[in-house]
Amino acid sequence: MSEKFHRKLSDLKEEVMEMGELASGMLSDSITALKNQDIELADSVISKKNKLAEMDEDIEEKALTFIALYQPMARDMRTIGCILKIITYLARIGRYGKDIAMTVKELAGEKHIGKLVEIPYMAEKAEEMIRDALRAFENETAIDAEAFISRDDELDSLRYSIFRECLTYMMEDPQKITRCSHYIMIARYLERCGDHACKMAEKINYMVTGKRMEIK
């Protein structure tokens, strides 16, 4: 494959990294907005959803053009396949950030319950997984599947623990049902973000090694 192709592929990878920063930034900002009940920051997250969708479309189009023009093979093809998949995961992660930001606006003006249960901690864990997956993509290094699986298991446990805790609050006081239902939803979004990070890790490992492995 020509040098021109590899240069362009490298530029496209840069764009994926930018999209990754945008998506993970939306997620972490939404949690900050939730913690601080910062409506302005929540609005800023919501306003980024169009940019995220544009990047998703733009990168997809460029990747498809690459296939049409250069008929890449082997690792080059796996890289493009990986890009096409991970932009979808990133778009979803960013949209979960937007969904959390919408919740921030709905819950504005009401005090948090139980210090937001374990949501900030859980978010931190999900963000780390996304960050590590993106770093592996950038450096083209394989991800330790076992370690990733146990991190995902931890997220699942956290979601369940938040669910149980919220149930207790709701049983104690029906006034808390609305807020706690939102918390349960947010925990579910964060768990899904972890799942997307795992799928990204699978695709990145395939890109790097040519071998399929399941991470879930």
Partner: peptide, 14 residues
């Protein structure tokens, strides 16, 4: 898609 040999991979990616 995923050749077994590094050399094949290099050939196919130019």
């Amino acid at each position: 898609e995923s050749p077994g040999s590094e050399l094949t991979e290099k050939y196919l990616t130019g």
